[in-house]
Design a protein around this nucleic acid. Structure first.
Lengths: 259, 259
DNA sequence: GAGTGGTCTAGACCACTTT
DNA sequence: AAGTGGTCTAGACCACTCG
């Protein structure tokens, strides 16, 4: 029933078959060839038309399901998810990417980069010794040249030798960490509070003391769970919103095909 | 190398094998038999010891991986994730559950339940006609009898016939929706703002006007993407924090086992 | 070289939904 | 009855990591 481009499957490629199928379907969904609520090709149809095993077809659909792009209903089929969970309100990690995704031009005002001994809050968050030095990077974050927030990043010094020479004050910190140190942030835990701006923060953010602000405390980890960054930041309440997707614990199973 | 309780596998049960294995390992991790950073049994070991196919063992490990409880490294093994991403800072949907998870005793002060015509904000969020009636439920939410926030829920009337008779003002709204109407919230989108409390809100929340607050706007959807609830709420900034886990887009694949 | 996870196959039985 | 997704099997080859 589907006449989609299933011609792009290259069995000689190093790209896994299920991933090629996933990308093909993702393309059809993004371009609108497959519309929200419509069924995507069934596991068996993919299997037959592309001459792949049903498990491979299933893996492709499962990955789209995990991404929230489609959802499956037993006995009925698999359908394009009506929610535009595309990008932008996806949990993001880089201020730069986040602002670009929202259509703003991001920039930073560099304040300072120092090597210091961490306070209690910092060394406990990073899980390091109080005697271990950290870099403290302070920046004001702007969107379209309007100050949005103040960020103070703490980075364990032993992870980033010679950071002062390698960090470009105008560039992305995360790009520096990835390119020069092979450090990739995999997951972060963030606590947000609502508070009021004080005099010093007000001057940097161009708002009156007593205005509403978000206060964030974020710890970032790499794949193996090592803390690679701790960030304290303050964002203007009048210009910044937090967008979240809340999901039900998706740990349940469905039923059984066997007595 | 592992001497864990792998005896609980019941092939006659209606519970899928992979799910039994997942739960067994989850138990070992929760009790501390498997500690953060330690390897969990390999796919082949599970396969051999439990006499299941490797794909089934793999499915169990994959599900734990998706939950963030373990992580896999190619050629090395699968290890318990060092982060205690257990519960509580998991994205939650029910105030009742959330507070219980944080160790508080939740309660509600019922304010009103009315059937009204929705305003623009409400009918656009719910994706319904302006002429379609909605229930408006107002409650003050307490933790250990201290007011934490004010919630105003809007519910499409046609989804919940006879809600007034079926809703217990002291009970959980989500339980009512699930038990009486078979409505299960699958996903929600929430926007949080930082603001200042006004006089009316201050009286209900027992704080001075001008104190910091969170303002939430949340739309909840069921599995098929139908909006089943819109909630406007206000929470005290001095007593409430938002805890989030941010993840990198996990849509990449790993490599290939074939040229 | 032995062990690991990543991918893939070609079947199978089941429960569920729709026709 | 036919089609769907959910589960499961018993194999296979590969790339990667480590000793």
């Amino acid at each position: 029933m589907h006449s989609l481009q299933f011609t792009g499957i290259d069995r000689g490629s190093a790209v896994p078959l299920y991933y090629q199928i996933q990308q093909t379907l993702l393309g059809d969904i993004r371009t609108g060839s497959l519309k929200p609520g419509e069924p995507v090709p069934s596991e068996q149809e993919i299997s037959a038309r592309l001459r792949v095993s049903r498990m491979t077809a299933r893996q492709a659909l499962k990955s789209l399901c995990d991404m929230g792009v489609v959802f499956s209903e037993r006995g009925k089929g698999t359908f394009v998810s009506p929610l535009k969970l595309e990008r932008n309100l996806r949990q993001v990690i880089s201020f730069t990417e986040e602002m670009r995704g929202r259509g703003f031009h991001p920039s930073s005002t560099f304040l300072s980069l120092e090597s210091i001994l961490p306070g209690r809050e910092v060394f406990t968050a990073l899980g390091i010794s109080p005697k271990e030095k950290v870099f403290r990077l302070k920046r004001v974050r702007n969107a379209d040249s309007i100050p949005m927030g103040i960020e103070c990043s703490y980075l364990p010094a032993h992870l980033y030798p010679d950071l002062r020479a390698k960090f470009d004050p105008a560039g992305s910190l995360y790009r520096t960490l990835a390119d020069h140190y092979g450090v990739h942030i995999h997951i972060a835990e963030e606590v947000a509070e609502a508070s009021l701006v004080d005099a010093r923060q007000g001057r940097l953010l161009h708002v009156k003391p007593g205005s509403p602000i978000f206060i964030f405390a974020r710890t970032s980890y790499d794949r193996s769970g090592r803390a690679v960054e701790y960030v304290r930041s303050v964002y203007r309440g009048d210009r910044y919103k937090i967008v979240n997707r809340l999901t039900q614990h998706h740990s349940r199973h469905a039923g059984k095909g066997r007595p």
